[in-house]
Design a protein around this nucleic acid. Structure first.
Length: 194
DNA sequence: CCCGTGATTATCT
DNA sequence: GATAATCACGGGC
């Protein structure tokens, strides 16, 4: 079942934890690509120095973060990679970065987009975007639409343990650098780092 | 496995 | 003009 608008309309930390074990889905022509979300990071409101919304200033890049919940915020980084985020909270500029997926369906298609070994297919934010054909054309896409969405799959067991750590790649964020707003499923082989 | 380094360009200052 | 929520690759262990 597709996640509701209400699911996304909460604080980013809660949404980041609850997205673990949910299934990211992407339509590619007649095929549907699916991967279980195994790693996320929360970017929390205008006060978080690691967030693109820090200071509350709207720019062309970050404006989707200031919009309604349940939409995709996709941005380009290091000149050549994309990162997928989920916009949360209706009244605050927050988002959750999807950092890793456990591939489930359409793996043959993903392997065509990313010529690499299975274990390296979706174990990083840029990698999973490449595998699922996610680029800036999906920036602002409604996650309740038919191009990209997230499901709660009843068949997936929810007994996993999760771990929280500091976020990756934000050494510049001063007092926000070490806050444990990264979450991942313990022992899943597709988590980007241990 | 764990480093260190270079790639490459939109965005922000 | 500098930076960046990253990755691939090469060398050493």
């Amino acid at each position: 079942m597709k996640l509701s608008r209400k699911f996304y309309d909460r604080g980013a930390v809660d949404v980041a934890k609850d997205l673990l074990g949910k299934v990211l889905c992407r339509r590619m022509r007649k095929r549907i690509l699916k991967g279980m979300i195994v790693e996320t990071e929360a970017y929390v409101g205008p006060e978080d120095k690691a967030s693109h919304s820090y200071g509350g200033k709207i720019t062309e890049r970050n404006r989707v973060m200031f919009g309604p919940p349940g939409h995709a915020y996709v941005y380009q980084i290091y000149g050549m990679y994309f990162c997928l985020n989920v916009v949360t909270h209706r009244s605050r500029p927050e988002a959750v970065l999807i950092r890793a997926l456990h591939p489930l369906e359409g793996i043959d298609v993903m392997m065509k987009f990313r010529k690499t070994k299975l274990k390296n297919l979706t174990n990083g934010p840029g990698k999973l975007c490449q595998a699922m054909g996610i680029d800036k054309s999906l920036n602002g896409a409604d996650l309740l639409g038919n191009e990209i969405w997230i499901e709660d799959d009843e068949n997936i067991k929810k007994e996993f343990e999760f771990v929280s750590t500091a976020r990756i790649g934000i050494d510049y964020a001063e007092e926000y650098r070490d806050i444990p707003w990264r979450f991942y499923i313990k022992n899943d082989p597709y988590v980007s780092k241990r």
